[in-house]
Each structure stands twice: as structure tokens, then as C-alpha cells.
Design a protein around this nucleic acid. Sequence first.
DNA 1: TAGATTGTTAATCGATTAACAATC
DNA 2: TAGATTGTTAATCGATTAACAATC
Lengths: 206, 206
Amino acid sequence: MKTPKISEAVVRRLPVYLRYLQHLVDMNIRTVSSYELGQKLDMNPAQIRKDLAYFGEFGRKGIGYEVSYLIEKIKGILKLDRNLNVALVGAGHLGIALSNYNRYTKEKMSIVAIFDTDPAKIGLSVGNMPIRHIDELDRVVKELDIRIGMITVPATAAQQVADRLVEAGVSGILNFAPVSLRVPSEVHVRSSDVTTELQALAYYID
Amino acid sequence: MKTPKISEAVVRRLPVYLRYLQHLVDMNIRTVSSYELGQKLDMNPAQIRKDLAYFGEFGRKGIGYEVSYLIEKIKGILKLDRNLNVALVGAGHLGIALSNYNRYTKEKMSIVAIFDTDPAKIGLSVGNMPIRHIDELDRVVKELDIRIGMITVPATAAQQVADRLVEAGVSGILNFAPVSLRVPSEVHVRSSDVTTELQALAYYID
DNA sequence: TAGATTGTTAATCGATTAACAATC
DNA sequence: TAGATTGTTAATCGATTAACAATC
């Protein structure tokens, strides 16, 4: 029963569970039921149980889930228990804002390099990392074993940056530029774009 | 046949179509088929036709879609042809990065107010808007007829900010804080959180 | 006209939810 | 034990894709 075929929707929900479970730890809550989780996350309890059951039997009938145990299991599933190096391309406002997303946590996933093209920025320090010229991308990605690239460059440059990241060997891209990227099917891409999100929200207004 | 019941998935794809159509205009391309769109956006042509057909007959058999006509139609559907005022709460790096998302476009949706709690920031100017104290939120939302709030505050403050926005009368929230917000069912919430996105990507690495 | 492409129905596929036996 | 809650199967619901008549 090794992961029959996990849908992206399930994978996307796991970090949401994880986040709330970590909140429960902070509140010294040891055990939680799928019903309680469902209440707090506004989700169907059956869905939560089913999502978790794809990966194993993590709960106890009549009791619920042990919070810290479930956290470890989800981290294992998402591979957050191993080091995972991330590169950020684009040292504009957004890039700098995102560069310290993990500054205060001790997660094993972390941004380890920042790139830009602007000569005025190269060498400047952001979160004690130097901004490097994008021509170093290929070399640095390989040297530091970077697996994920975050793109925070203007739309016009995004596809080109994606091509370079893929060429350098990353297997995941998180794209913040407002453009649909074309990448080989073995590379996973997630896009997050404010404009698109706001426009979708606009539909529901009034 | 007025909008039988449009799923969120459909609404989320419309801005993606719009974005690519605007790109086609820039390239002086006048007409496009669902097949071509599908190729470029990596989507099924039948899905694109079906999505559009929910709202009307925008294409011509044997020809395809007239680009600028379809743009106008999609803008109408998403209500991007009317003014829509947005408030941004949280003038940290991320907030400031997002505050100029529409600086260079002439869209009718725009950020018209920025709020924070930090006394050191109040009164400072960001994109020719003053940073206001959050205690002014209710008044300003009403005065400026703000309908959407963007939340870029730390996780610990996000729910409280959401409550204030709802209380002030917004009908949509775009949340960037890493927390699941609870809001009344009539308020639409979209969440976008780097950590969650990266963690979901991590699942596919290796 | 012949070729292309829409709009739409029907078929398929997949995801969510309900229900409940197992069991803590 | 009685009550609670899981894991899982079956039922439902919804979304995607295929197919094709209509028609430009």
C-alpha cells in the first residue's frame, strides 16, 4: 500500500494540517481528533482522515491523533526531515521580502542563494547571503545542491530564468511572476501571483 | 442560462486566460483558437471552451476567439471593468512589495490604503499613500468604499486583522499570513503562503 | 466548397462525503 | 462497559475530457 497515487490536492493540504498541528503544540495540546481539526480548518473530518490514511495509520480509534507524532509523520511524508536547498532569483522588493521567510524557524528547507542581474545589487547582502549574478546560477545550483528555485523577477524575464533553473537541474519551481511557465514535465511548478488572485476574488465582490 | 453555478476552479482560470490574451495583444495577434491557448497554457482545449461557454458564446466556429473582444468579455465577467478598492494591512517587506503591484498598469482595481500598527511607520509614504494606523481601518474602509483586504501581517495578528476587515465590511480577503482564517461564509478568502507552497513542492523533490 | 473550430452533450475520471464496522 | 473516533468502503458529487453536429 505504498502511496497508491496521491493527488496534488492531498499534497497541498498536508502543509495546512502541519501548520495547525504546530500551533496545537504551542498550546500544549497533545491529542486532536479529525472532527476538531475539521472545525478549526473548515474542512470535512472524513477528508482529513482519508488524506492521512493514504500514508499510514497515524491515529488511534476512540482517541484521535497524537499531535507531535502526527507532525513527525507529515514532515516525513513531505520530506521536511531532510535538508532541502532553495535558490531565490530576483532581489527586488518581493524577493527580499520572501528571503527571510525562514529566518526565524529551524526548518531543514532553506534559501541558500540569491541571484539578480542588476550590477548595482550584486555583492550586496540580504539575510547574510550575497546577491550573486545570475550567470553564476548554474554553478552555484550544482555546488550547493539546490533543488528548488523561487522566481521573483519581472514577467518578461521569468521564462528565461525558469529555463536556466531547469538547465541547472532543479526539480521544483515556485513562480511569483505573472506568467504561465513552460517547463519539462518532470519539473514541478507552482505559481502564485497577486494579480491573478485579486482578479479571481473580484468575481465574488458585490 | 445566467451562470448556472460556476465553480471556483473556473473562476481561478479566467485571470490566467486574461493574462495570456493580453500578452497576445502585445504581440499584435488578433485571433486565437482554444487549441492554441491550450498549447501555450498547458491546458485542455475543451476545458477552455467550456469555461468560456459558461458565460456566453464568445468565439466563432471555424475561426476561434477574437483576442481583444474576449479580453473585454473576461474583464466584464470578473468585474474588472468597475472600480474596486483594496486595502493592504501590514507595511512590512511583503506588504510594501505587494503595494506596487498595480503601479504600472491602469486597471480599475487598485490599492487605495495601507495600514500598520508600528508607530514608527505611521505617516510614512508608500507609493504615494500614507501608512495609516490600523485603528483608522473601519472608518477608511467605509469612506473609500474598500471591498477587498490584503493581509500581510505576522501570523499571530492575522485573525484579528481579518476580524476587523470583516467588521468594516469588506467582502473579500487575500491572506498572505501562514494561518487558516475563520470568516463568515459570505466573505471570500484566498490564502497564499510561501511556506505552505514550498512544503507542498518538497513532496515532489527526489 | 473543404477545413477548421466552436458550443455542448455524453462519457469518463477523480475527489469529496457519508456511513459504519472495528476498536481504543 | 459505553462513548468516541479511527480507517475504509461505498455513495455521491463535481470536474475534466472526448466526441461531434453546427457552422464560419
